[in-house]
């Protein structure tokens, strides 16, 4: 590969990482369709490169999330049992799914992502701390206050974890797009803790997919490496930019990009 080709991949991954981290949906949701549509990469190869980037994003983000207690390790450890199982099943399914079907499924996921970007999950009213089996607490730097919460509906979370693992394995995304809304709007986890916990979990979920993809030969090092580097740099830039950008405009712009990409993916799948 030439310098220009590497630079192209790094640039695409950079924008994917930046946009993804600004809106909390992860870089894979943009990276996979961008690799397919702009660089004509095979869907399976794009999914494999993205899933490796997801691990890198998780490792980089989780360091401070774990230290600052934003990530609820107990909740993550519990939910990982089913996200990894879902990823295993998803990996097996991926063996039988054609590239066009991956593109079609991605179109559906992108429409759902656009919906969640435009309508962020609403938190449920706080429960008494004694009501949940798993509890958590962190110091919120923004409001300068200790936030304590109790996690409820663990069974629902466990079931959602299985779906998230499946989606992650089939489409190369982190699974946060499924888990964060469920944790916030159904399980009583504050948004900040849900995003951090999801980020902490996705590394383990993704590795259950990435190792078999690597063994299958779908992870092409010369493609995956610039994706990892670009997404990591982009995620850092995105987290710096996010508080300095008007969220409402950003959401509308991003939802438009997602819907257009969904249209492009649906066309690639032969649906139009």
């Amino acid at each position: 590969m030439s310098l220009v080709q590497f630079a192209e991949v790094i640039l695409i991954a950079f924008f994917a990482g930046a946009y993804g981290s600004m809106l909390g949906v992860g870089g894979g949701i943009i990276l996979v369709p961008a690799l397919i549509a702009l660089l004509q990469v095979e869907p399976r190869t794009a999914v494999a490169a993205s899933i490796v980037s997801v691990i890198a994003t998780s490792c980089a983000g989780a360091v401070s999330f774990v230290r600052e207690r934003y990530a609820n390790v107990e909740l993550a450890v519990l939910l990982e049992t089913t996200t990894t199982a879902g990823a295993l099943i998803g990996t097996l399914l991926a063996l039988r799914v054609s590239g066009d079907m991956v593109a079609g499924l991605f179109a559906v996921l992108l429409i759902y992502a656009a919906y969640t970007v435009l309508r962020p999950p609403a938190a449920i009213p706080a429960r008494p701390l004694e009501s949940g089996e798993i509890r958590g607490a962190y110091f919120d730097q923004k409001i300068k206050e200790e936030v304590s919460y109790s996690v409820v509906r663990l069974r629902l979370g466990i079931a959602a974890g299985f779906v998230a693992g499946n989606v992650s394995a089939l489409l190369g995304v982190g699974g946060g797009i499924v888990m964060v809304p469920v944790m916030v709007s159904r399980m009583g986890v504050p948004l900040r803790a849900a995003t951090a916990t999801s980020n902490f979990m996705i590394g383990v979920t993704a590795v259950a997919t990435a190792i078999p993809y690597y063994a299958f030969g779908d992870v092409i090092p010369a493609l995956a490496a610039p994706c990892v580097i670009g997404v990591l740099m982009g995620a850092r830039a995105g987290s710096w930019l996010a508080p300095r950008t008007k969220a409402a405009y950003l959401r509308i712009a991003f939802a438009t990009v997602l819907l257009y990409t969904a249209y492009a993916m649906a066309r690639r799948a032969g649906l139009f």
Binding site: E80, T84, L88, L92, V204, V207, T209, A215
Partner: peptide, 14 residues
């Protein structure tokens, strides 16, 4: 359990 699933997934791959 997660470790066993990851090991099973890796075994599938290889």
């Amino acid at each position: 359990i997660s470790l066993i699933v990851v090991a099973a997934s890796s075994a599938v791959g290889f």
